[in-house]
Design a binder for these strands. Structure first.
Lengths: 183, 183
DNA sequence: AACGCGAACTTGACAGTGACAAGATTGCGT
DNA sequence: ACGCAATCTTGTCACTGTCAAGTTCGCGTT
């Protein structure tokens, strides 16, 4: 049960997660501290521990939430009849709009990778992405290629390596994903 | 002068950098500690500080070394008459073969991004990569696309997200980079 | 309606970290 | 040969994550 009921604080679990997102967005992961989060939320220094057990436990919850959000967005794109390019655009839109989640998700040394909620959401996202290229000659290769393209663009964008351009990220990814996968 | 002469230890700077590479390869960045490195090298806990000033200073040196190695490899590929696909293969080969360097290089929140040696090497690598697509209709877009493809593949590979395949990474990147950029 | 069980949170402590200041050691140029 | 300055050590401080023990308080049970 990961239920959260209004006891003393109201909803500490959610509050800590939100504070973590804010802190990570500002200073990157690693710049986040359990005690610091507790301070931001107005709780004693060991308050969050009761909800997440570990620092890794907190980041596990964040990563699981991220994979769930991503999988939902990809599934919605598929349900709306989107093709590969739309899936890529959704992926990039998620990465740019949820930078904190995204950065944690792909840093498996920070969390417990065997968490059931996490693996379930991660597999769901992977399946949605792979479904877009299932009808190609070499589906595995095509899937990896598509994922690499959008993932690389998203990470480069988020780390600021692409800062010299002022184009819209989603438009960019649509442009070259289209020219590569729709010929 | 970042010279390193055999004083008391012999060559502390190099030894600490090597120890850092080993530690990061094992436990990822963040799992590396100044004191821990000092212990590995057999030096007092504040020994490394004199060479790098900061923890961030140490990682800055590592990142600069990484960008230099990458730029050298890319330049060599160009000098040997390599095309876009060869450049991509070199990029991936570097990322997989120098995982510790590569991981630090693209985590700018860990080091001082304005270090002159670092920026010089980074720009050199960027220029080599961009040179491979200079004759395209939209060079900026093509450059970003190529970089995204190989960078995404490299990071996904290194984080273990692609672990379900047992193919050779360089062969994979050659396969889909070829089908995308040589048509 | 009161009571006590257990969840939510606090307090206190411990080992380990990065950073700094001040002292000890030793190679090297003059 | 001598002293300077780079190299390294020792000691300390504030801070962190984690654990153990205490405290508060909502809620179901009777």
């Amino acid at each position: 049960m990961t239920t959260e009921r209004p006891y003393h604080h109201g909803d500490l679990r959610r509050a800590v997660l939100d504070a973590a997102v804010e802190a990570i967005t500002e200073h990157g992961p690693g710049g986040v501290g359990l005690r610091d989060l507790a301070r931001r939320v107005g709780v004693s220094h060991a308050g969050p521990v009761h909800h997440f057990k570990d620092k890794a436990g907190l980041l596990t919850a964040l990563a699981a939430e991220g994979f769930t959000l991503l999988a939902d967005a990809l599934d919605a794109t598929v349900a709306a009849g989107g093709d590969i390019v739309d899936l890529g655009a959704t992926y990039v839109r998620f990465a740019v709009g949820h930078r904190a989640h995204f950065e944690v998700m792909f840093r498996p040394d920070l969390y417990h990778g065997d968490d059931p909620a996490l693996t379930e959401a991660r597999d769901r996202a992977g399946a949605a992405l792979a479904g877009g290229v299932a009808d190609r000659p070499d589906p595995e290769l095509a899937s990896v290629a598509a994922w690499s393209l959008v993932h690389g663009f998203a990470t480069l964008w988020n780390t600021g390596a692409l800062s010299r351009t002022d184009r819209d990220p989603e438009a960019m990814v649509r442009a070259f994903a289209g020219s590569m996968f729709l010929t």
